[in-house]
Design a binder for these strands. Structure first.
Lengths: 110, 110
DNA sequence: ACAATACATTCCCGTATAGGCATATGTCTA
DNA sequence: TAGACATATGCCTATACGGGAATGTATTGT
């Protein structure tokens, strides 16, 4: 079996660096496809295909205005990723704490 | 061009659900391969291959003890993912805030 | 040295890419 | 209605994938 389809879930969709760039770009404000093409320097068909994946996974919303279609990141869809990574956060925070403690112990000795 | 290699970065590595399961399992304590096989019900060669990817991306550490090899999640390697998703957190938090405000406005009217 | 145990690697296969290019679709304007 | 503009889709190719089965490698105990 090959890797799961990029359209199946957010984890797969954001595995592609260009798609993450697109999500970054569309986080603050909605933008038409042409602007994504211009800013990221990716071919238009390629951008459209990435947007298709992002739309199918709910990572972006689309709104048509005349000939243009404005896309915007749907942060809510990124939330599951954030939550999954958050379950590991306590480990590196704990690690940092230990490093800090060790440093303090050291400076106490000196 | 095909999708980027799973070994290229953490984003690609965790796109695979089984690998996320493995990371979850190895987060609290190190475990030998046989235990991962038993707990997740995946074939041993398959587990070994996933572990290889996770090791190449630094997502797990390995320690040999006799015939067994103990693996353990390296939370630090998940941090970049957490940080990337964190940049979007303020948007859904803001969204939640707006929903809350709207609810309060509504109840004020009633 | 040999057998058993614990993992890792290799090969094969069907599938899902992502990019490039051409083309189709939808919308506005003259 | 024709043409320009904005975007989407289809086709092609090379490549990476993940599972299954078989095999290789390292370590231990006898």
């Amino acid at each position: 079996m090959p890797r799961a389809a990029t359209t199946s879930d957010a984890f797969n969709a954001v595995a592609e660096p260009r798609r993450r760039e697109i999500l970054n770009l569309l986080a603050l404000e909605e933008r038409p496809v042409s602007e994504i093409v211009a800013r990221l320097g990716i071919e238009q068909p390629s951008v459209s295909k990435h947007l298709r994946v992002l739309r199918d996974t709910g990572l972006v919303h689309a709104r048509r205005d005349g000939r243009q279609i404005f896309y915007r990141t749907n942060a809510e869809a990124i939330r599951p990723l954030h939550e999954w990574t958050e379950t590991f956060a306590r480990f590196w925070r704990h690690q940092l704490l230990r490093i800090k403690e060790r440093a303090e112990r050291k400076s106490r000795v000196n």
